[in-house]
């Protein structure tokens, strides 16, 4: 397994990690669909009310203002101030320096991915993690323009990397209230809550 090198408090640890999916822990449910004759059915995309496009029949493309196709590798990262930013390295490309993180930051993070750490060596950070500490670092699986916030956390038997983005929390005062009739745009996250099996 490919490994990354983690450094904290003068100690270092080489460990590999693999993505943790909920289905690997609890299993999963899937819905089979059949027509009236018992033939299996699949979801497809219908365009213009007449063209049936099976899964994998469409792709996303990016165009410049003249309509020329642009590959993703040609795009560059830009921050909120309109400045181009360099790519940030992958966790595999060099030592990963951990620092003691704040549990409140961990709890304010919108979780994107979870990885289980695996190593033949015992973790030198075990006592820190067992005491409830979280160790923070920047995480990029591959070199990319934006890295994620990441925390190393333990449950007593295994260590995990939890990645995501720490949210900027808004503190509300008495007169800063939510209007009950204000429109709120539907977010992707809310879309994710929809389960097509119900249809």
């Amino acid at each position: 397994m490919r490994t990354a090198e983690f450094h904290f408090g003068g100690k270092n640890w080489e460990a590999g990690f693999s993505k943790l999916e909920r289905e690997d822990v609890y299993g999963w449910a899937e819905v089979e669909s059949f027509d009236g004759n018992g033939n299996p059915c699949k979801l497809a995309t219908l365009v213009d009310g007449r063209h049936v496009l099976p899964s994998g029949s469409t792709s996303l493309i990016k165009l410049d203002s003249s309509g020329k196709s642009v590959s993703t590798s040609e795009l560059v990262g830009m921050n909120a101030e309109g400045k181009k930013v360099p790519k940030e390295p992958s966790v595999y490309s060099g030592p990963v320096h951990l620092r003691e993180g704040d549990l409140d930051d961990y709890l304010a993070m919108g979780v994107k991915s979870v990885y289980v750490l695996e190593s033949e060596e015992e973790s030198p950070f075990e006592s820190d993690l067992a005491n409830g500490k979280v160790l923070q670092f920047r995480f990029n699986y591959r070199e990319d323009y934006e890295s994620d916030d990441a925390f190393l956390i333990g449950n007593g038997t295994h260590n995990f990397i939890v990645t995501g983005q720490i949210a900027d929390l808004e503190y509300l005062s008495q007169h800063q209230m939510e209007s009950p009739v204000e429109d709120e745009p539907q977010t992707d996250e809310e879309d994710d809550l929809m389960d097509f099996s119900m249809f």
Partner: peptide, 19 residues
């Protein structure tokens, strides 16, 4: 992610196959 000239790319979904 922006174009090298700093402008936003136009994202489109395109058909590449059908039933």
């Amino acid at each position: 992610l922006v174009l090298p000239n700093g402008k936003d790319p136009i994202n489109l979904r395109v058909i590449k196959g059908s039933a």
